[in-house]
Design a protein around this nucleic acid. Structure first.
Length: 609
RNA sequence: GCGUUGAUGGUCUAGCGGCUAUGACUUGGGCCUUCCAAGCCCAAAACCCGGGUUCGAAUCCCGGUCGGCGCACCA
């Protein structure tokens, strides 16, 4: 069993992840989040909100998961989010049609499926596997199609990314932020891609959750006002150059921007922010790096793009977050298709006096002469130079017809006007998070198997060595060849910021006199909105193990001393140490342990070590 | 999508033509005055789906679904 299998086994068993539609045999590319999984995922998302919405101030919006066709025509997904495929008649192997004709054609990637079919026929291209002939090439679009409304309805698509919603709402957002750059918006939600072959569990799904942020910035000033916050932060960078050598390096954000490794401050700031986020939710910083997209891998419109990748045991380095400078590509595309200008008016610090050549066609005279064409004539006149306008007979060409205009029909002059600003199409900086992958990464990086005896010795726990040697003696008597099996415990080292259960409350024995105070404590903790698990089933050791497995950071145990002095023990998951603390105020102590980084030793008097 | 390989309680697994399908862990109820799996009593729980061969199929054959791996794909 490799780590992926172990993590999945635990995830399934403990209610983190289940295959969807299992009752009916399942369907690839879909997963259910179980009770603990949903909670863990929501807590990850909530921390994301704290970063982007609360700290950065990019408000959250929510758009439909179904989009109308125009949106994806503009975004390029209708035309470009597909690949031309071609299958062999003989062996049914599928190939990229454009790859097949690459050797005989230039720009094969731009050809339609029909054109590709023709090229394949003309050049008699055969299957590289078996030499068979090919069927016609066809486009396989990765978007789920649907119909809006009854009958033939209107063509709709399930969104393949949440980003388009922010672009489509650009004008409203700009207004909301009082037309002042920079501003941004985020969206957390489901997106859909009809993957040809989903694999690797939750790494590639057909329905998945994205957390995307679109930051609209002034293209001329890509400095970050708060750059100092992270400028001295060291990141592990795997730049284009570094990839050639195959070795990543550490560098501060400031240096990286200065050296041109990272394109600009805003991108650098956002890389550091992502680093902060991933580390906070429990990604191992030693297995986290930022990889720059290679030139041919980057979208043609992007200036620079970095993926936050984490190392997993089975899949190697996996992309978790993409952080790109998408320039003005998206806004321009939507402007073109919607025939609406999308820009922000940016005022100058000082109004500028601009001298320009102004042409004023005299519509009162042009109108009667040219009737319906007058407007076009006026437009044509505006294109002329001063020299051409100074002639006795001015000639313009309208709809292929050469017309002569007398000089009194148009006036022109140099004029000086005050210009106080200009229209700017913002550039978009986009951090885009794959929540499901991050969820898996959090699980894998939290997963650990520990030798209990060793752990107990490290933490200086009393009484456990005895128990251990006793059991060994029993085994040795029973079976001569039995190796003294070392006890291991499965433990999820979730950060208490994301742990789906924060405190377990355990009566030492299932007896009313212990259960009552335990339930009292549960109520107090819940009042502090802590996530509490009450568990009275099985021996105390078993319950500690159970909670280790789901990553509960703290366990409170009620024993018979509790009845004497109203104190309980608090156990720390990672060290397995315990302290004794009074029930009064226990909810505040736990709250501080979880949210205020209070040290465990300060929570009470040492117990059993 | 192609090839390959697998699918047995919640989990891992034995069985590979023949009565009520193996075992472990887990789980539920109870016992237990004391803190880190394997204490005691009791209980619950499985042959992926559909066809075929056969007197008889978890077991053999075919198809499907799902999982692993390889190829292809991954805006």
């Amino acid at each position: 069993m490799d780590k992926y299998e172990k993590v999945f086994e635990l995830a399934k068993r403990r209610g983190f992840l289940w295959n969807s539609f299992e009752l009916y045999g399942g369907s690839r590319g879909f997963y259910d989040y179980g009770p603990l999984g949903s909670t863990l995922k929501r807590r990850i998302e909530q921390i994301w909100r704290e970063f982007y919405v609360i700290q950065e101030g990019f408000m959250e919006i929510e758009c439909p998961t179904i989009g109308i066709e125009e949106v994806f025509i503009a975004s390029g997904h209708v035309g470009g989010f597909s690949d031309p495929l071609c299958e062999c008649i003989n062996c049914s192997e599928a190939f990229r049609a454009d790859h097949l004709v690459e050797n005989v054609m230039d720009a094969a990637g731009t050809l339609s499926a029909d054109a590709l079919t023709k090229v394949i026929r003309d050049y008699e291209i055969r299957c590289p596997e078996c030499g068979g002939e090919f069927r016609d090439a066809y486009e396989f679009n990765l978007m789920f199609k649907t119909t809006i409304g009854p009958g033939t309805g209107r063509q709709g698509y399930l969104r393949p990314e949440t980003a388009q919603g922010m672009f489509v709402d650009f004008q409203r957002l700009s207004r909301f932020y009082r037309d002042k750059l920079p501003f941004g918006a985020v969206q957390i939600g489901k997106s859909y891609r009809n993957e040809i072959a989903p694999r690797q569990g939750v790494i590639r799904l057909r329905e998945f959750t994205q957390a995307e942020c679109e930051i609209f910035v002034d293209p001329r000033h890509k400095k970050h006002p708060n750059f100092e916050r992270f400028s001295d932060k060291e990141l592990v960078l795997y730049s284009q150059e570094a990839q050639e050598k195959g070795e990543s390096f550490r560098m501060t954000v400031r240096e990286a921007v200065k050296a041109g490794v990272i394109a600009h401050e805003i991108l650098g700031y956002n890389l550091a922010l992502t680093n902060e986020f991933l580390t906070k939710i429990g990604i191992n910083p030693a297995r986290l790096r930022f990889r720059q997209h290679l030139k041919d891998e980057m979208a043609h419109y992007a200036i620079d793009c970095w993926d936050a990748e984490i190392e997993t045991e089975r899949f190697g380095w996996v992309e978790m977050v993409g952080i790109a400078d998408r320039t003005d590509y998206d806004l321009k595309a939507h402007a073109r298709v919607s025939k609406t200008e999308l820009y922000v008016y940016v005022e100058y610090n000082e109004p500028r006096m601009v001298t320009r050549f102004a042409i004023k066609p005299n519509m009162g005279k042009l109108g009667p002469v040219f009737k319906g064409k007058a407007k076009n004539v006026a437009d044509a006149l505006k294109q002329l130079s001063e020299e051409e306008l100074s002639k006795d007979e001015i000639k313009v060409t309208v709809d292929g017809e050469e017309l002569t205009i007398s000089p009194d029909m148009v006036s022109f002059a140099e004029e000086t006007v005050k210009v106080s600003g200009e229209n700017v199409i913002p550039h978009v900086i986009e951090p885009s998070y794959g929540i499901d992958r991050i969820f898996y990464g959090t699980m894998e990086h939290a997963y650990d198997e520990e030798n209990v005896a060793q752990k107990a010795a490290e933490s200086g726990l009393k009484g456990m060595e005895d128990a251990d040697s006793e059991s060994r003696a029993v085994e040795a008597e029973g079976e001569s060849d039995a190796e003294a099996e070392e006890e291991t415990r499965l433990v999820m080292h979730f950060s208490s910021a994301v742990a789906p259960v924060q405190v377990a409350v355990l009566p030492l024995l299932t007896r009313k006199e212990l259960a009552d105070p335990a339930k009292e404590i549960v109520a107090k903790l819940r009042e502090k909105t802590l996530l509490v698990n009450y568990d009275d089933s099985g021996t105390i050791g078993r319950r500690y193990r159970r909670n280790d497995e789901i990553g509960t950071p703290y366990s409170i145990t009620v024993d018979y001393d509790t009845l004497e002095d109203r104190t309980v023990t608090i156990r720390d998951r990672d060290s397995m140490r315990q302290v004794r603390a009074p029930i009064i105020g226990i909810e505040n102590v736990l709250y501080e342990l979880i949210y205020r980084d209070r040290s465990f030793e300060s929570a009470g008097k040492p117990f059993n070590f």
